[in-house]
Design a protein around this nucleic acid. Structure first.
Length: 713
DNA sequence: TCACTGCATGGCT
DNA sequence: AAGCCATGCAGTG
């Protein structure tokens, strides 16, 4: 907390400075072209506050061509030669901050040379041909400036291990509020702006974390409290265990990063999604200071005053994307270190048959190759078993933005047996620098959440509104229906499976028939099925529904309360269902929709006993029975008519012959000959459809729907 | 008829 | 208000 308030203090000062620095001139001091009345300025390098430097066309062109420093900073200090090719790089300048990498042994290397040594990974900035966005790196470099300004002299002697920062970040990431202290805290903080205060802070962080986040420490075993962290011979050296840049678990030791061109072409992390200011920023300061030494390549000489602290809510990993659970094989004891990059909870779309997994934009831009064409690039990812998958990493242009997704994930997802609600975890293996795709089943997340809840430590990350899913409140209102669906999805995303489970059980109760209804028993293939003619509509009790058949729920979608039924369908959707058929409604579990993409996995067998198949069989049998019954009735009816007409003719004849004997004929009329034995008062429709009468239409429609939706074949 | 594709839409952050 | 992103949907083969 001491750290927090120190930083907040700096933030205030810097905000003031930033206001002063605003102008309408070209950001390049050497140019300072006045475009106050112009609008044709262009974005240049990214500023520390997340904005971009406004440059005139000339300067922007120079920047985009990577010649800005050559042109404008030729006389400035800080030029260093690439250790490999000797190319001069203007180090220590924000403009070129992304154009080089710091070497373990000291010195720098231009990206062109670095790319030859890097096959993959966000930390070691690869070349434009296979670039990774790492604007976070810049952020943390930037943040180091503020950190030093506040606690420049502090360097805890025994806290060089990155685990401290990881612990701290984990502690922070799990919901501890640093940015909203009580006044008492604040007073304490200000009074302890000392090294002891910092020790307390770090010690506290470690203490809490070690008590409550064993997993997070295990997450990076090499960097754990008891590990022997590699000592950096150079403060700027690459430090594998702390290599990953972000995440509540991760230390933010980061390295170059984006070239100017890349940055402009690929906007990188706006920060809003991944980072929140108050948490990672301070800790990243701490981290930078602890691990990178006093100097930073961004010991900035530019006029940029803004800091990441200027924008509340910025630089924290959004929980749903930050890796949360240790990956099983994260640390290969001998060599490899697995660095979680980000994770994604699979949506229905992601896990569906379309085979496209939407990626969080910020994460995609931060950790995956830069792509400039919508066709994207193939991306090879290994799963946890070492199997290699190649996806197409692409994007769509969407509302002046991009929507990133992986294409062709279905086989992989099926291989991992993942469903909507499960989580895929993108990680990187060092030093191989392979991308690997781990996963966490929703059921695992549940236990994880429970565990952390016990620790009372993840509340702000995982706690969601405990509003029960009120089916009634969603009736007929698309918006509320959607809201509930979203809410439900969020519950899944946040791992609140326990609530979902409860709701599911409640939903099971919804589809149970009312006790006052007696089912008709139908035996199909030796199995007895109960068929209710007036089963309840989910969320709308006591309303005729046809049957519990899921297809009938689809039928109801055609009626007034379709939205509520959608909701019910969504709620009832089997976790094993894959995706929706394009023409089926949300949560449809018809035989079409539950089938996996064609050819990719076995379809339901003829003797499959799943609910849907049972339903299909039952409906088929019902249809058949009724069809036969109707046919029989028609035949009988026809026979009766013929008989009647025959009798009528006979009667006429008799009447003609014996006009006085009417009473006898009348009697004959009411006592048909035994040959026919047909009740002339028989009304096929009425008999067949009673009881319940009110449901006639529903059932008819239901049958039709069954025929179309389930397509039994 | 259905899988695939790419864009559009709209709730949500 | 802007942007993200889950999902819908129309066009195409």
């Amino acid at each position: 907390r001491a750290l927090v308030y120190i930083l907040e203090e700096d933030e205030d000062e810097e905000e003031e400075e930033e206001e002063v620095s605003e102008d309408k001139f070209c950001f390049n001091r050497e140019c300072h072209h006045d475009f106050t009345r112009e609008s044709n300025y262009r974005p240049g390098w990214r500023l520390r506050n997340g904005d971009f430097a406004d440059l005139c066309n000339r300067c922007a062109s120079a920047y985009e061509q990577g010649k800005f420093c050559e042109i404008f900073h030729q006389r400035a200090s800080g030029w260093t030669c690439c250790e490999s090719c000797g190319k001069r790089i203007h180090c220590g300048c924000i403009v070129s901050a992304s154009a080089f990498m710091l070497l373990d042994a000291g010195g720098i290397e231009c990206l062109t040379c670095a790319r030859k040594k890097v096959s993959m990974g966000p930390n070691l900035r690869p070349p434009p041909s296979f670039p990774f966005q790492s604007p976070i790196a810049e952020k943390f470099k930037d943040l180091s400036i503020e950190w030093r300004s506040s606690i420049r002299s502090y360097r805890p002697p025994n806290l060089s291990s990155p685990s401290i920062l990881q612990c701290a970040l984990q502690y922070r990431g799990d919901g501890y509020e640093f940015n909203q202290p009580t006044s008492r805290d604040k007073a304490t903080a200000y009074s302890t702006e000392t090294q002891r205060g910092m020790n307390d802070l770090v010690g506290k962080l470690m203490s809490v974390n070690s008590n409550n986040h064993t997993s997070s420490i295990l997450y990076n075993q090499k960097a754990g409290p008891n590990c022997k962290a590699p000592t950096c011979p150079n403060g700027n050296a690459y430090h594998p265990p702390i290599s990953f840049k972000e995440g509540p678990l991760g230390a933010q030791r980061v390295f170059p990063v984006t070239t100017p061109t890349e940055t402009t072409g690929h906007l990188g992390l706006g920060g809003r999604y991944l980072w929140h200011k108050a948490n990672s920023s301070q800790l990243s300061h701490l981290h930078n200071d602890l691990n990178s030494g006093a100097d930073s390549p961004l010991e900035n000489k530019s006029g940029n005053i803004g800091t990441h602290l200027d924008t509340p809510g910025k630089y924290q990993v959004v929980p749903r994307y930050s890796p949360k659970v240790p990956y099983k094989d994260q640390v290969n004891e001998s060599v490899s270190v697995v660095t979680p990059l980000f994770e994604k909870i699979l949506s229905v779309s992601d896990a569906g048959r379309v085979g496209r997994m939407v990626l969080p934009k910020k994460c995609a831009e931060a950790f995956l190759p830069q792509i400039s064409h919508t066709d994207g690039v193939p991306l090879t990812i290994h799963d946890s078993r070492g199997k290699e998958w190649t996806f197409q990493f692409r994007f769509w242009v969407n509302s002046n933005s991009r929507m990133y997704f992986l294409e062709g994930v279905t086989p992989c997802i099926q291989s991992m047996q993942l469903q909507a609600g499960d989580t895929v975890i993108f990680s990187r293996v060092d030093p191989e620098r392979k991308l690997i795709l781990g996963f966490r089943k929703a059921s695992d997340a549940q236990s994880s959440v429970q565990e952390t809840d016990l620790n009372n430590n993840r509340e702000s990350c995982t706690k969601v509104d405990a509003e029960p899913i009120d089916m009634h409140s969603t009736m007929g209102k698309k918006k509320s229906s959607m809201t509930t669906t979203r809410s439900k999805r969020q519950k899944i995303e946040k791992g609140d499976i326990s609530e979902m489970k409860l709701t599911w059980e409640e939903a099971q109760g919804f589809i149970l028939p009312p006790p006052n209804l007696t089912p008709s028993i139908i035996t199909i293939e030796g199995i007895e099925f109960e068929e209710y003619e007036d089963a309840p509509i989910i969320g709308k009790p006591n309303t005729g529904f046809g049957s519990t058949c899921s297809a009938n729920r689809n039928l109801l979608a055609e009626q007034d309360d379709e939205e509520a039924k959608d909701e019910a369908e969504g709620l009832l959707m089997s976790p094993n269902s894959t995706s929706k058929h394009p023409r089926h409604r949300n949560g449809c579990v018809c035989i079409v929709c539950i089938q996996s993409p064609s050819g990719t996995s076995p379809k339901h067998g003829r003797r499959c006993s799943c609910t849907v198949c049972d339903t299909v069989r039952r409906r088929r049998a019902t249809l058949l029975l009724r069809k036969n019954k109707k046919k029989q009735i028609e035949i009988e009816s026809k026979a009766h008519k013929e008989l009647e007409s025959l009798n009528s003719d006979e009667e006429l004849d008799q009447s003609a012959n014996n006009s006085g004997n009417t009473s006898k004929n009348h009697e004959q009329r009411h006592v048909p000959p035994s040959k026919a034995q047909i009740d002339l008062n028989f009304q096929p429709e009425k008999d067949e459809e009673s009881p319940p009468r009110s449901n006639t239409m529903t059932k008819d429609k239901s049958l039709r729907h069954d025929e179309t939706s389930f397509n039994p074949s």
